[in-house]
Design a binder for these strands. Structure first.
Length: 688
DNA sequence: GTAGGGTTAG
């Protein structure tokens, strides 16, 4: 019921009127009333600010505090409680600029030495991942309690400074303070991250011996710690002995099995959980779905997503973020688009993590354009978002774009990390941007990032692909760490393209030492000898393969049409439209010949006559999949084919001409990258 | 009105 407000509300009356409305949770009405109080008292300000934070609107809380400062200036200084409520809002908002402002106010009004205010400030800086701030507030406290120490070490742990967190934990003990249950459950994740089994076990010992007061938080953290240290048995043991088990404990043991690659065990545990008394929560489903994806069980993950919905649970943004990589891995554009539509309908779109997963999904499924569009719309981009877009462009052979993104990333003030450079370098490598790549490599120092083996391998790849094989070899020799298979493999790959048998022998020798059982290396070397007409040596390595019982996985290509994936092997006749495919390819073969295509039978390694060789070429899985895609266009103007191995050189040429003849864009993703065929050209500019 | 249990890139 509405009633008419008195025209001039006294501060006390305002407070009394505001309270019941706030208790009812109607913030809009509370604000309307608040705005009618000419001079709200401190309680009213505090109560409204707290209410905003509680309802998940910390930015409103902070804005209200700014209004308070503007209106009251010197006449009404904030008290301790008002400051505490604003500090809490800043912690929830996690914005460093605002955090520093409120810290200054705490100094101005002489509350920084207050234990509660100090503790709240430490926590706030921790939430902003500004550990220097947390530490300096901590240092300034004349008296520190368990909460001060716990808040400080949590700041370190949550900001990724696990060692510093553990140092703080030890110092705390040396200063005579006893860690409690919260302290222990805050520090254990540091042991999990660092996989420091000994520290973790010591803390476990302390928990048992000193009776920290076991609760679900502590035991769950212990289970997670043991699981992270690959001690599944100990994890199970702690779980079995738990006195208090809540749903989180179950979720933690579930994730323990996934973490250790035991997805079968995990899934049967999940089934058990579903039949038990425990009520599954979002985290249970998200853990199961995410666990499946992490273990390569992508189809199972998508299945669980459906089951979750049947149970009446609406996937939340974490579910969606966890399941999107399954679409990326399966390259299922169809399913990915379905999930995108779901995101759109449910307005969880603004979440940066989800959007990043979406950007990557589109790129992996061949839709770089959509990927870029979504990326450009992101209001905030962190290093992972930028890296995702850089890697996506590199994957699609757009090195110049990757470089541009890298520059923009720097301009926008986001710090590149080691992954950024891996992405940019591989982009340069695929686009033959040699000088640019070398420059990027050397610029790593400017960002205080030490090149790792992958960066060196990228550099070797960059030079090898550009034909600078000697330089590439020199760089391998100059590597500060032992050269990896990636580096030697890159050199060997370059030797195949530029027909350098001598360096190939050296590269292969080293490669075989590191990876004696990788059939791909033997095939590659053998093919280099074939190209050099060194038949004897070529067959020697084929024989070694046979003796070792190794075989390269057979080439296959697949394409998604409507909701189904169709797979093709070489010379595959099992498809129901097989006859049409053959007829279509014969027809196309005639047309592309007229357009200037000539079959390159160098890619046929068997000893056959010319006509037979052409026949073999025409049976390659990628050609079959492309033909099938073109026969089942359903009005699309592009098709996407995926191949498990590298695309064959003749197929590459054939598909270029085919794209021109049929006027359709053909996108082929091979084991290394994407090729966009359009109007007789490929995005890789024949450089792969 | 001060501390603790998830998700995205290689």
């Amino acid at each position: 019921m509405r009633f008419k407000l008195p025209s001039n509300i006294s501060p006390q009356l305002g407070e009394n009127l505001l309270k019941p409305i706030l208790n009812s949770g109607d913030l809009t009405r509370a604000r309307q009333l608040f705005d009618k109080i000419p001079e709200p008292n401190l309680h009213s300000w505090t109560n409204l600010i707290s209410a905003y934070t509680k309802q998940g609107l910390p930015n409103e809380a902070i804005n209200l505090y700014s209004l308070f400062r503007k209106k009251n200036d010197i006449h009404l200084p904030p008290d301790r409680i008002l400051l505490l409520s604003v500090i809490k809002a800043c912690a929830a908002f996690a914005d460093l600029t605002k955090a520093k402002e409120i810290h200054e106010d705490a100094v101005t009004y002489r509350f920084v030495s207050d234990l509660n205010v100090g503790n709240a400030l430490i926590n706030m800086y921790g939430k902003c991942k500004f550990c220097e701030g947390a530490q300096s507030v901590f240092d300034g406290l004349p008296f520190k309690d368990v909460i001060s120490w716990t808040s400080l070490l949590s700041s370190y742990v949550n900001s990724g400074f696990f060692r510093e967190g553990l140092v703080t934990f030890r110092e705390m003990g040396l200063n005579g303070l006893r860690p409690n249950a919260v302290t222990v459950s805050s520090i254990l994740p540091a042991c999990s991250e660092l996989k420091w089994f000994n520290s973790g076990r010591q803390i476990h010992g302390y928990v048992v011996k000193d009776g920290v007061g076991e609760n679900a938080f502590v035991t769950s953290a212990l289970v997670d710690m043991y699981a992270s240290c690959s001690c599944l048995k100990e994890a199970q043991l702690v779980f079995d002995h738990m006195l208090v088990r809540d749903i989180v404990s179950w979720n933690v043991i579930l994730s323990a099995y996934f973490l250790n690659g035991e997805s079968e065990m995990a899934l049967s545990l999940f089934d058990e959980m579903r039949t038990q008394e425990v009520t599954l929560n979002y985290d249970s489903w998200n853990t199961a779905i995410g666990g499946c994806v992490q273990n390569g069980e992508n189809t199972q993950a998508l299945e669980l997503l459906i089951q979750m919905q049947i149970k009446g649970l609406k996937p939340n943004h974490i579910t969606i973020t966890s399941v999107l990589p399954a679409c990326s891995n399966l390259e299922s554009l169809r399913k990915g688009k379905e999930i995108h539509a779901y995101i759109f309908r449910n307005k969880t779109f603004s979440d940066m993590t989800t959007t990043t997963a979406l950007v990557y999904m589109y790129a992996k499924c061949g839709e770089l354009e959509i990927s870029s569009q979504i990326f450009n719309m992101m209001p905030r981009k962190d290093a992972i978002a930028w890296n995702t877009m850089i890697i996506s462009n590199s994957m699609h052979g757009k090195g110049d774009e990757a470089l541009l993104l890298f520059k923009n990333m720097i301009i926008s003030g986001v710090k590149p990390n080691s992954v950024t450079f891996t992405g940019v370098l591989s982009g340069c490598s695929h686009s033959r941007l040699v000088d640019e790549g070398i420059q990027v490599f050397h610029s790593m120092r400017d960002y205080f990032i030490e090149p790792d083996a992958d960066h060196y391998s990228s550099l070797v790849d960059l030079l090898s692909r550009a034909g600078q094989l000697e330089e590439a070899y020199e760089h391998i020799q100059k590597m500060p760490m032992k050269a990896t298979a990636g580096a030697w493999g890159a050199l060997l790959g370059g030797c195949r393209v530029y027909k350098n048998v001598d360096l190939a022998r050296i590269a292969a020798k080293n490669l075989f030492e590191i990876e004696p059982d990788n059939p791909g290396n033997y095939v590659l070397l053998s093919n280099i000898f074939v190209a050099g007409k060194l038949w004897g040596e070529a067959s020697k390595y084929r024989k070694i393969m046979e003796e070792k019982g190794m075989s390269k996985p057979p080439g296959c290509s697949w394409i998604q049409v409507k909701n189904k994936v169709y797979t093709f092997a070489v010379g595959d006749k099992s498809n129901e439209q097989s006859d049409e495919i053959t007829k279509f390819l014969n027809d196309i073969r005639y047309k592309v010949r007229l357009a200037g295509y000539f079959p390159n039978t160098d890619f046929v390694l068997q000893d056959l006559d010319q006509e037979e060789k052409e026949e073999v070429l025409c049976n390659h899985s990628e050609k079959l999949a492309v033909a099938f895609g073109l026969l089942n266009l359903n009005g699309e103007s592009s098709i996407r084919v995926f191949k498990n191995l590298r695309i064959c050189g003749d197929c590459h040429n054939f598909i270029k001409f085919t794209a021109k003849v049929v006027g359709i864009q053909i996108i082929v993703r091979d084991s290394l990258r994407f090729h966009h065929f359009k109007e007789g050209l490929c995005s890789c500019r024949d450089f792969w």
